[in-house]
Computed example of a mutant assay.
Amino acid sequence: MSQDSLQQRAADLLQHAGIRIDGDAPTDIRVHDERIYARVFAHGSLGLGEAYMDGWWDADDLPGLMTRLLTSRLDEHLRTLDTLIAHFKARFVNLQRGEHSFEIGKAHYDLGNDLFQAMLGKRLVYSCGYWAHADNLDDAQAAKLDLVCRKLQLRRGQRVLDIGCGWGEALKYAAENYGIEGVGITVSEQQAEFARELCRGLPIEIRLQDYHELDERFDAVYSIGMFEHVGGRNYRAYFETVRRCLKDGGLSLLHCIGSNNTPARPDPWIEKYIFPNSMIPAASQVTAALEGLFVVEDWHNFGPDYDRTLSAWRANFDAAWPQLAADYDERFRRMWHYYLAASTAVFRSRRDQLWQLVLSPDGVPGGLRVPR
């Protein structure tokens, strides 16, 4: 197909999303390199993202453009071999078990604490904030941590497990405000080192450990923003681990992104550049994995709050870029912009959700009134 034909085909597709090539609207695409059309039609979302990283196109409102693309489902017209390979691997290959479980730590979470400290705000909490009564990122993250503690009904002296503890902020908050002692596990060396220093002087132990290895008892078990790295073939094993570690009468909370889509459909660009071996769960997968292990006491969706969280992260990242530029190049900056914009669009278009599930082993007698 000729260059002109490819460009016309692209223009016709984009018209369905209200996007023009080289138009004047903030959500219009400005093309700097005509090779973009062949690249995108050959490689779909992977080609679109790589072309942006290489400076082949721009948009004044990148999250807005990508929201239009997803809302109009134009991505479904660009399924390529790269897409099929990513979906095949996610469905049939267990990429989250054994040595593979540590790959995400090295590839993403060990990029540098300086990057995440600059982006995430006062607390290094790399998950959706709770904006019901907050008007800034720091307050939204504190509200989320407190919401988790209240849902779990944490009390002084309880022993709590944080699966995927990140930089230790959630355990620190719970120890300082609810008097608990805790164990946090992570697969990132940099996170573990930071968390140990952050929680120094508190009754908290931080381990570099795979959750499958856990076999000890806790009053409460939670996971915030980690389940996305578990993988569909391991969901049952994850919940079996939680059940094994949770005392009778205890509560567990799962905070994770959830998809409206069919299972095992990771994006090839995200898989390659941001979160290797990751998978967003579908509700059908979660409920099947829970059967016979837990009662779902509450299922809370506040996915739209991720739009505000990601927008705040991008503003922080841009403000810190003059300092970060000494360690990260321009292609990384564009890659990170694309990642945050694509993520914003996924939630703004309501393709993905943010779920908090409260679970009990045998059901709370009389039911559980879960706070909001």
Results as ranks from 00 to 15, higher is better:
residue 258 G to F: 10
residue 277 N to M: 05
residue 231 G to P: 07
residue 232 G to S: 11
residue 272 K to L: 15
residue 290 L to H: 08
residue 186 T to V: 05
residue 251 L to V: 00
residue 314 R to W: 06
residue 274 I to G: 10
residue 312 A to P: 00
residue 311 S to P: 00
residue 310 L to Y: 05
residue 278 S to V: 07
residue 290 L to P: 00
residue 287 T to A: 06
residue 277 N to V: 04
residue 189 E to M: 11
residue 287 T to Y: 11
residue 209 Q to Y: 03
residue 215 D to L: 00
residue 181 E to H: 04
residue 285 Q to Y: 01
residue 271 E to F: 11
residue 260 N to M: 03
residue 276 P to A: 15
residue 298 D to Q: 04
residue 216 E to C: 11
residue 227 F to L: 12
residue 288 A to S: 14
residue 225 G to R: 12
residue 236 R to I: 00
residue 301 N to T: 02
residue 248 D to R: 11
residue 196 R to K: 13
residue 216 E to T: 13
residue 245 C to G: 14
residue 182 G to P: 01
residue 214 L to R: 13
residue 196 R to Y: 02
residue 222 Y to P: 04
residue 188 S to H: 14
residue 233 R to Y: 02
residue 324 L to N: 01
residue 252 S to N: 05
residue 254 L to F: 06
residue 317 F to T: 00
residue 208 L to K: 12
residue 244 R to N: 01
residue 321 W to V: 01
residue 292 G to D: 12
residue 229 H to W: 01
residue 212 H to V: 06
residue 318 D to P: 02
residue 235 Y to A: 00
residue 275 F to K: 15
residue 232 G to H: 01
residue 246 L to F: 03
residue 255 H to T: 00
residue 273 Y to D: 10
residue 255 H to R: 00
residue 264 A to S: 15
residue 272 K to A: 15
residue 255 H to N: 12
residue 241 T to H: 09
residue 268 P to W: 12
residue 201 G to Y: 01
residue 275 F to I: 14
residue 233 R to P: 05
residue 254 L to I: 13
residue 252 S to I: 02
residue 265 R to E: 13
residue 261 N to K: 15
residue 261 N to W: 13
residue 193 E to S: 13
residue 314 R to V: 05
residue 273 Y to R: 13
residue 242 V to T: 06
residue 286 V to L: 07
residue 298 D to V: 03
residue 300 H to C: 09
residue 292 G to W: 04
residue 202 L to F: 01
residue 197 E to C: 07
residue 324 L to D: 08
residue 242 V to F: 04
residue 256 C to L: 03
residue 274 I to C: 09
residue 275 F to R: 15
residue 275 F to M: 14
residue 192 A to E: 15
residue 245 C to M: 03
residue 183 V to D: 09
residue 316 N to W: 10
residue 291 E to N: 10
residue 187 V to R: 13
residue 249 G to S: 00
residue 211 Y to K: 07
residue 290 L to M: 05
residue 284 S to A: 14
residue 188 S to A: 07
residue 184 G to A: 14
residue 218 F to I: 09
residue 223 S to P: 06
residue 320 A to C: 03
residue 293 L to F: 09
residue 285 Q to S: 14
residue 252 S to Y: 11
residue 266 P to D: 13
residue 191 Q to K: 12
residue 194 F to L: 05
residue 309 T to W: 13
residue 260 N to L: 02
residue 206 I to M: 08
residue 269 W to I: 12
residue 259 S to Y: 08
residue 226 M to Q: 10
residue 190 Q to Y: 12
residue 301 N to A: 04
residue 208 L to G: 04
residue 252 S to K: 04
residue 195 A to G: 11
residue 202 L to M: 02
residue 284 S to V: 12
residue 294 F to S: 06
residue 303 G to V: 02
residue 186 T to Q: 06
residue 195 A to N: 11
residue 302 F to L: 11
residue 308 R to A: 07
residue 182 G to I: 04
residue 215 D to Y: 09
